[in-house]
């Protein structure tokens, strides 16, 4: 029961459905977004990062330190996007 209580939600939140509108802008061109590398802290538009595409997936690396920013893998029926090396993305409002 203690465990239940720790995870019991309060009344102050909505749910992810309400984020749909705000996230909709992410379908715009993401390559112009400013990306901060979690490894070295430098920022640059994703369009300027280093893409290694002759690989099992698309690997995008930081143009400053070459750490992996993100990886996009095509599994056929679905795609897997990992963003482990991205600290944040700053997207200009359209």
């Amino acid at each position: 029961m203690d465990d239940q209580q720790q995870h019991s939600p309060d009344q102050d939140h909505l749910d992810g459905n309400a984020l749909a509108g705000a996230l909709e802008q992410f379908v715009a061109d993401l390559t112009s977004a400013d990306c901060t590398c979690d490894g070295c802290g430098s920022s640059a538009p994703l369009a300027t990062a280093l893409l290694y595409a002759r690989a099992p997936g698309m690997v995008l690396r930081c143009p400053t330190c070459t750490a992996v920013l993100l990886c996009l893998t095509d599994q056929g029926e679905r795609q897997v996007l990992t963003l482990d090396g991205v600290r944040h993305l700053v997207i200009a409002r359209r």
């Binding site: 002759r54 690989a55 690997v59 070459t66």
Partner: peptide, 8 residues
């Protein structure tokens, strides 16, 4: 022999 590489 295709060259595959995920980085430098």
């Amino acid at each position: 022999f295709p060259v595959m590489s995920a980085g430098p």
